[in-house]
Design a protein around this nucleic acid. Structure first.
Lengths: 241, 241
DNA sequence: CGGATTATTGACGCTTTTCAAATGCAGTGG
DNA sequence: CCACTGCATTTGAAAAGCGTCAATAATCCG
């Protein structure tokens, strides 16, 4: 059930059966969440740590003028809010982008693992550092690359993260349930422009993207075009090729 | 010597004298670095963890087209690369923006503290989470706000970070050694436009900024204008007001 | 089938970039 | 002290990229 999380962490280190059992034991329950529901709201301190088992979610911030900035996508294996093991409030919200299966992890058990199990402490810290690294790359991506390369880069990243979590073993075709609007809010673009750029990427033969399905027609060209170097994700060689 | 780091961490928790001593003992040596020198290069795994004692540095990424994206500013009290306690290579570089005093912390001692001292483990993790939170805010800032508000927001943040590290007790005037070019590379703007926007902010009576010195003429107005809400930095009430 | 999202298109305007040149300023050496 | 040099700031003009508005087509879902 928490396979995706384990797969992701094992990009970095090997977990013993006991470690995996500890993680599994931290699961209090699993719940189904509908699409477009807030799982965690900014300024809250949730009781449980949420782990995505199935579906997509996003971290987002609401700005003064009411617009939504999506600052991260969350896919199976991603923890929504380990932050609150230490911080006393969330600095952003998390919302489902599809129907979700979510595991509720006991905060106390997470803390206990963090302080009493060096391997898992490493794993949690690693996971936070990776998220930070991804944020840096997203930042560089939006500040420095034009819209077409920017989207290309985002597609490449998602593909790698799918592989890292063991959700696909290919790098050319995945379930991709985002609307163009949700893509635009993360890329810092308007929907209209996002739409036009997507059409260009399609016409160039780089991708197809329809019916909640993304297909990368030419991985190498897309990678080069989007200036994508997966090393910032610190994954295992096997995943990165 | 490591006061700024301690001040920063004590926004979050109280360190015992023993904790402070441990941190101090981790310092192998302090070195002077010239301006515009790379302290850590991407893909390296530095031997020591670097702590800024004096001066400014920046995290940056070099992109395919040769342009530099500054993804973070580092000021006294900031650790440049705890990452490498866990990760096997840097995903970005760090460069001095002014002459620097840098403390070299032993990686082994940091790791030992992380695994054997719950308070310091918390503190390091907290520090990483804050950096991540700041990255999220930077991301939302550049994707969602126009150039003038974007710069206003950045000024507000730096002011708060100065206060958090005990480098000033005011919120209206600091040493600010960045060139407009270095500001532009972080804001995702061209120098030309940065310059024009700065002139507008000056004309509006919000700031003055010359001779490596930033003065905020009207903190409340600047805050409102830049849509700045310091809660994402998770600092103590005293610092945030 | 009907209502509601989502995707697409066109026209227009504004923010920001780029290019190119000018001005100002600090440090250096004679 | 002044001329020279190199860097940082400022200015102008034109073009590009992207956003906004508004309307239409396509698709989804009950």
């Amino acid at each position: 059930m928490i396979d995706a999380l384990i797969n992701k962490l094992e990009n970095y280190l090997t977990l013993s059966d006991a470690d995996k059992q500890h993680l599994t034991n931290a699961v209090d329950r699993v719940e189904d969440i509908k699409k477009d529901q807030d799982i965690i709201l900014v300024n809250e301190k949730p009781e449980f740590v949420h782990l995505i088992i199935e579906g997509w979610a996003c971290r987002y911030k609401l700005l003064a003028d009411g617009q939504r900035a999506i600052v991260a996508y969350l896919i199976p294996g991603d923890l929504c809010d380990i932050h609150i093991a230490l911080l006393d409030h969330m600095d952003h919200s998390v919302c489902s982008l599809t129907p979700l299966k979510i595991a509720y992890l006991s905060r106390e058990k997470i803390e206990e693992m963090f302080f009493n199990n060096n391997t898992l402490a490493r794993a949690f810290f690693w996971s936070a550092l990776i998220e930070e690294s991804i944020m840096r790359e997203w930042f560089a991506n939006v500040t420095s690359r034009p819209a077409d390369k920017r989207l290309a880069h985002m597609f490449c990243e998602i593909m790698m993260r799918y592989r890292a979590a063991g959700l696909t073993d290919r790098h050319d075709s995945i379930h991709f349930p985002l609307t163009q609007n949700e893509l635009a809010d993360a890329a810092g673009l308007s929907v209209v422009h996002t739409n036009r750029v997507l059409q260009r990427l399609r016409k160039e033969g780089l991708i197809t993207y329809a019916n909640k399905h993304l297909e990368i027609k030419d991985w190498d060209r897309l990678k080069t075009f989007g200036d994508f170097d997966p090393r910032y994700m610190h994954l295992s060689e096997a995943v990165m090729q």
